[in-house]
Amino acid sequence: MTSEESFSWQEPRNSVVRGAFVVVEGLDRAGKTTQVQRLCSKLYALGHNIKTLRFPDRNSTIGQMISSYLQNETDMDDHVIHLLFSANRWEKAKWIEETLSKGYTIICDRYFYSGMVYSAAKQNPSLSLSWTKHPEIGLPLPDVVVFLDLEPWQAEQRGGYGEEKYEKREMQLRVRELFLQLLKADDGRMKIVNAGDGMDAVEERIWKEVLPCVEAVEGGSFGVKIGKFKG
């Protein structure tokens, strides 16, 4: 059950202050999609109201342009593709806020953190990490971000590696470095999880980081208001 529709066939089962916004980030082939599925299933089984989201959302016109770029079918200027990725997130901003307000917890596979670090990792002098943050200012802010940390050489050993544009060791090394840089400057929202072990062990580590946050948000400890990214 990885698609949004898998958890959206009924109205919220429990009354909560608002849903939590949970983002799962990581290097390519770190197991994000599998862990999002497992996390959703466990939360849903406990009675939480769950919906899922994945970026890029390749269903929209903008998403289809991004997909073509990632599959090496088209080429674009670095700034253009970054702004398309950002626009793709903005397409879902209102939906995120409305869904959280209705009491659904959203589990999101990648968000603007990936957008910023993957663009900055290209080492384009005019596309710094600071520059990449500006188009994201004002987007809904996650309540917790789990970063699945994986050595690039480990990612290379996993199935399907190298099929898309950014799946190259040098690029992944820079992406990891920038993610860790964000972690150092973070306010505690981002949690690092070692993704190099078996799926079950990784699942338990994620669970320990996410469940307390979800329960606190739904219980009102974080307040009704949904935060905004300030850069």
Rank of each mutant, 00 (worst) to 15 (best):
V23T: 10
A20K: 02
E209P: 09
F85G: 05
V224K: 12
S6N: 10
S128F: 07
Q37Y: 02
G159N: 03
G227P: 02
A155Q: 02
V175W: 11
V193Y: 00
D109G: 08
G138Y: 07
F112G: 03
S114A: 11
L27Q: 08
R174Q: 15
G159A: 03
T52K: 04
P140E: 14
V202F: 05
Q123H: 12
V17W: 05
S68P: 00
M199W: 10
E11Q: 07
V214I: 10
E156C: 10
F147T: 04
K228R: 14
I81Y: 09
D109Y: 02
K102P: 15
E5H: 04
L148T: 13
E97S: 11
E209D: 08
G159D: 10
K168G: 12
R29K: 07
T2S: 07
G31N: 02
M76E: 13
V144M: 04
F55V: 09
Q37N: 11
Y113T: 11
G31L: 03
S86V: 01
H48I: 01
S130Q: 14
G196S: 08
R189T: 15
F112I: 00
I96P: 00
M116T: 01
T74C: 11
V17C: 09
A185S: 06
V202C: 03
K102G: 04
S101K: 14
T2F: 12
L148M: 15
S119G: 14
R205S: 04
A201G: 01
M171L: 15
M65E: 14
V24R: 10
V224P: 00
N88L: 00
G227F: 00
E97G: 02
F112Y: 15
G159K: 06
G160E: 01
S114C: 12
R29T: 01
V175F: 00
Y161P: 05
E73M: 12
K168N: 14
L150E: 08
I96Q: 06
V24C: 04
D149A: 08
K94Y: 03
S3C: 02
E209M: 12
E5I: 04
W131R: 12
N88M: 01
V117N: 05
L46A: 14
M65D: 09
K133D: 06
N194P: 09
G138A: 06
D78E: 15
A20Y: 02
E177G: 10
L141A: 14
F222L: 03
F222C: 02
G63Q: 03
Q172T: 08
R54Y: 03
G220I: 05
N72V: 05
E136C: 15
K208N: 04
K102F: 07
Q157A: 01
E215R: 09
M199D: 07
I106E: 07
E4S: 00
Y166E: 06
I50S: 02
Q123N: 15
K32A: 05
V217S: 07
I66A: 06
M116S: 14
G227I: 00
K133I: 00
L46P: 13
K168I: 15
E164I: 12
C108R: 11
N49I: 09
L178S: 09
G196C: 07
F147L: 15
E204G: 02
S15Q: 12
V210I: 08
L43D: 02
A201L: 08
A216Q: 13
P212K: 13
A155G: 08
